[in-house]
Design a protein around this nucleic acid. Sequence first.
DNA 1: AAAGATTGAGAACTCAATCTTT
DNA 2: AAAGATTGAGTTCTCAATCTTT
Lengths: 160, 160
Amino acid sequence: VTDDGGGVSWLTSEEHHAWAGLMQMQGQLLGRLGRELAARSGLSLADYGVLVTLTEADGGRMRANELGRQLGWEKSRLSHHVARMVARVLVVRERCPSDARGLLVAATEEGRRSLGEAAPGHVDAVRRWFVDRLTTAQLATLADIADAVRAGLAEGECGE
Amino acid sequence: VTDDGGGVSWLTSEEHHAWAGLMQMQGQLLGRLGRELAARSGLSLADYGVLVTLTEADGGRMRANELGRQLGWEKSRLSHHVARMVARVLVVRERCPSDARGLLVAATEEGRRSLGEAAPGHVDAVRRWFVDRLTTAQLATLADIADAVRAGLAEGECGE
DNA sequence: AAAGATTGAGAACTCAATCTTT
DNA sequence: AAAGATTGAGTTCTCAATCTTT
């Protein structure tokens, strides 16, 4: 609990260093990766995430609900984004046979092609700017950190 | 280099765990903190960042250029955001005495008041959802990670 | 020309309200 | 009523073009 002279700062300097560093890193990293991806493939990071998730799913299609959950998106965001991707013929909406309330989202041929073109370069960029800068131990710790924080957030959703 | 059956994934599972976990954590954490902050103070995380940065600066004012650099924002984003904050009387624009091209941005009384009201709750939220979930060693490693990645990105800006 | 900053248009996100099916 | 999804309005961010001062 320090306040280093006039400013507002009630984290210790170590805590602040970690927190502020994380925020800055994330912003710059996403900016860089997003621009590289868009320049080379015309896909945004969001598009990429949707296509990867769909492609990894069984049959290349997925309940919209589940897609949103895996991406960590709100339903409204997903709906708007899918609409834009449908307009660009990257995905299609399909009726869900088992539950008429539901929706299936499927990658089109065009979507698979775009992803296939974009993926090698993007993975390379993730390596270049992120993975290769870190040690195995650092990556392991980071994974633990992410798990711990997400577990806390997940608890908070309910019990709060 | 694994491809676990039809999907696109050229990171090892450890690498993927760290990378995907980081992205998810960040999204959820910012969402949670942003909503709590907005609900309690009417400030967005972006507003908060601007006010903290200005308040910590000498005289509570700062070159727009430098402000953008510290926040990691593009000049256009900063300009739009400052315009919105001026409209809400949280900051004011001032002419820069030393360079007529430049601009100074200063926190208003109202801006300081809003920040003062918002800060304790926000810092508490950062502790609750983030800092307190982690060990000292994890925080230290995270700071190192952020430094390493940012150093790489900074290099890339020029040398590339 | 380069640096500092603004502007406008378009894309993306959030919130609240709505609609359909269970 | 609850769950799955869409819609519209308002806000914020990005990109490119522009303007002013150095």
